[in-house]
Simulated scan of single mutants.
Amino acid sequence: MVLLQQHSVHIGKRGSLQARRHSDSLRRSRVDLEVIIPAYNEAARIPDTLKQTVDFLANQPWSSRIVVVDNGSVDETAAVVRRISREEGDAVPISVVGCSRKGKGAAVRRGLLSGTSRFTGFFDADLATPLETLTETMAHLSDGAAAVIASRHAPGSNLVRPQHLGRRVGGTAFRALTKSKVKGIRDTQCGFKFFERDALTAAMVQCRSTGFAFDVELLLRLQDNNASIVELPVAWTDGAASTFRPFQDGVASFASVIQLQRATP
């Protein structure tokens, strides 16, 4: 593992986004894989998520780091993550970075672009997709895939605990809306996506979405760049404590994708 020298970068309130990302990456040692976990008011759930993730990653042949992006939480999410980091030690380092801009897309973007690992990606704090999915994911990435995404609708997938009716109906409509945009992908919204760094960076510089259309646009940009995307069927469990609101967030989801469709050819 190559360690980056530690530097201190002073950034004023008007410091550039580029400088802040540079500062983040210099504070994090180089690893094979960085796992980004976006978090909003996850103080209660994040300890178990982190401990399970550390236990899994510590037994893998690749080096890893967990990066929790605190997306403007008003609870003790950041403090809890720092405490868990001290308790777990250095086998799998845990970092926390802030993101004041609202939206999961903004939080994921912040985490992805602030690292230097060869492979990086994100999953949700509810661990709806089994951690074991990372084993096959890393195999595909090491073999040359640009992106590996979990799918609840690919042949062979299994819904261990399905979503309630309102979310299922909304999800079906959302997939119909995005089908013509991201071709060949059955599930753009499953919260488990991992990437090869260079392919990710090339796609991210073209992305503008930070809300619900973030996943759709990122996959679209990857396809525009002829990047290979592997869709893995998974045994998926709906998070009972999900903060997604079917009506309010569903309307925002459709609005985001419609705006994306108007903005891209």
Results as ranks from 00 to 15, higher is better:
A78N: 03
E87T: 06
I94G: 07
K179Y: 07
R110I: 03
G170W: 06
S151E: 05
F192G: 00
A147G: 03
V81G: 00
A146E: 13
L177G: 06
A173N: 07
T116C: 10
S117M: 07
V160D: 05
A173V: 14
Q163F: 13
A128I: 02
S157E: 06
D90Y: 10
V148Y: 07
D90Q: 13
H153V: 04
T178D: 01
S117Q: 09
T172A: 14
K181Q: 11
R109P: 00
R175S: 10
I185D: 01
R161Y: 07
T172I: 11
P162N: 03
L134D: 03
R118D: 13
V160G: 03
L165H: 08
A147H: 05
I185N: 01
R167Y: 08
A125F: 08
L127P: 05
R175F: 07
P155I: 10
F192L: 05
S142H: 08
G111N: 09
R118I: 03
L134S: 07
V96R: 06
R110Q: 15
S117K: 04
G111T: 11
G191Q: 10
I185V: 15
C99D: 01
V97R: 06
A78T: 14
S151R: 02
A176V: 04
F119M: 05
L165V: 11
M138V: 03
R101Q: 15
G121I: 09
A79F: 02
A146I: 03
L141V: 10
R186I: 02
R86D: 13
R168V: 12
I149H: 05
A154F: 03
I94R: 02
S114I: 06
L127C: 13
E76Q: 14
L127K: 07
G166S: 13
G156D: 10
N158R: 15
F192M: 11
L177N: 04
S95Y: 14
C190S: 13
L141C: 09
S100H: 12
A146S: 15
V169C: 06
G170S: 08
A150M: 06
L159I: 03
R82T: 04
C190W: 00
T178W: 00
A78W: 00
H153M: 06
G103H: 01
E136M: 10
R168Q: 15
G191N: 13
V81S: 02
F119V: 07
I185R: 01
E132G: 09
D143I: 02
S151L: 02
A139R: 14
M138H: 05
R152S: 10
S180Y: 01
A128K: 09
G98I: 01
E136A: 12
L113R: 10
V81P: 00
E136F: 05
V169R: 11
R83A: 12
A79E: 14
H153Y: 15
G103L: 01
I149Q: 08
D143W: 08
S114N: 05
T188V: 13
A150K: 01
A147D: 05
G170E: 05
V108K: 02
G170A: 07
R161C: 05
T172L: 13
T188F: 05
D124R: 04
G103P: 01
V81K: 00
D126I: 02
Q189P: 02
V92D: 08
G98C: 04
G144F: 11
R167S: 12
R186L: 15
F174I: 10
G171W: 01
S100R: 13
V108P: 00
L113F: 09
K102I: 09
F123A: 04
R167V: 14
T133V: 14
A128L: 04
